[in-house]
Design a protein around this nucleic acid. Structure first.
Ligand code: SF4
Ligand code: SF4
Lengths: 161, 161
DNA sequence: ACAATTCGGATATTGAATATCCGCTATAGC
DNA sequence: GCTATAGCGGATATTCAATATCCGAATTGT
């Protein structure tokens, strides 16, 4: 079980977009170059973010993407689910129906004990991701990244908006 | 992102094996028939459980599988990781190294803030699964399943051990 | 000893999901 | 209005999971 690599890209792009000056747009080409990933494929992730209402894109020269909401209103979970989907990691195939002992007249009702445990774990995973926003991430990065690098990135971004 | 369906099968098989009389073995063929799944593929999951020390198999007629430890000592996490692996769901490709602003002389050190959040969520998921044992599952099933069905299953199992 | 079973592992095949690429259309600025 | 630019959606290739098949080794009951 593994998340798509687009999840990582989307999180990085969100972090970068959180640092774009208000009212400006950063093109997907720049985001792809910045992270060293294929531009056409990264677009897919950005499109997914746009569909989820996390970012918004505009066409033409000086176009690109920007966050559609303030960074504090966007959680890791929002970004992850936008590109990965909301499906549970545990897919129940209802194999208990094949049980030769079960009476066909009384089909099992409700989610079984196994599925409930797995879904609970899923929920704990989600809760953790929902508790961290892009604003939190920005604060952490501001504290950890060397000031020199941070300024360099800001200048690099400002240069292409 | 989705777990393999073998995870579901492995959990069901573990639950059934927890009900096998001590000292007896239940063959993979019976487990496959019971759940209505392909026998050859289910063997793969059982072999993974055997490698992880969760179940043990024995050869010859009257052979089969049984739990290698008491049900209270086997957690959901043990079973899930046995067939799914212990790899984190979030694979970090270190794309921050491609950052054109970073100085090649000072490579980023330690796991970054994004990866840390994702791993924390993973850890929460694991913790939930580690907290539930096969004995807990058995207790839940005993409380929820109709007595008639439970006896039917016990008889069906006893018939093939 | 022998034959019937059963696990164990290797291998091939299929199909779906993922990663990647390319052409189209809409927009902004001159 | 023309052109360069950028996002959008569909088409393509690659990877990986799911399944079937086979044979060998070990064990038990006859
Ligand atoms: S996980 Fe539960 S509901 Fe799903 S197939 Fe198994 S027994 Fe049925
Ligand atoms: S998740 Fe963190 S460590 Fe991994 S590539 Fe992104 S920035 Fe680097």
């Amino acid at each position: 079980m593994q998340l798509r690599n687009q999840v990582e890209w989307a999180l990085h792009c969100s972090a970068v977009l959180a640092g774009v000056p208000p009212g400006r747009f950063l093109p997907a080409r720049a985001l792809a170059e910045f992270h060293g990933v294929p531009q056409a494929y990264l677009s897919k992730a950005l499109q997914a973010l746009a569909r989820a209402g996390i970012v918004e894109g505009t066409l033409g020269p000086a176009g690109g993407y920007r966050l559609a909401k303030p960074p504090a209103a966007i959680s890791f979970l929002d970004v992850v689910e936008a590109v990965e989907g909301r499906a549970s990691t545990f897919a129940c195939a209802e194999i208990r129906r094949n049980n030769p002992c079960a009476s066909p007249a009384h089909p099992p009702t409700g989610p079984c004990a196994i599925a409930r445990v797995m879904w609970e774990a899923d929920e704990a995973w989600r809760a953790r991701l929902a508790a961290v926003s892009l604003a939190d991430l920005g604060a952490t990065l501001a504290a950890e990244l060397p000031a020199e690098l941070r300024d360099g990135i800001a200048a690099w971004v400002a240069d292409r908006t």
